[in-house]
Amino acid sequence: MTDHDTGRSGREGGADNTEYRIAHLQERLVREEVAELGMRIESRGNTVVVSGTVPTAECRDTVVRVAKEELGGTPVRTDIVVADPTAPDRPEELA
């Protein structure tokens, strides 16, 4: 880890380790009300990026809230799309 300065507050390699925090965020998103397995959560520079597609705006709000809670002081950037519920404008011909 490059972030050993912020990782020294008592539990090295534990709760303050970004890699483990990302893993814990992923677990929490699955466990909690959104049951979201489809988010991509990656460390980029000194931020964490959360991206993916969710079924509703409420789900997006929950993912953003949980990410900010779980990642504490680490800056979080989100790029989360709400799935489009409109009918398609054309079919695909497979013949």
């Binding site: 993916g52 799935a83 489009d84 409109t86 009918a87 398609p88 079919p91």
Partner: peptide, 12 residues
Amino acid sequence: QPVIRRAFAVYH
């Protein structure tokens, strides 16, 4: 749905 980005896809 996140892949097809619509309510459904149609195949002929």
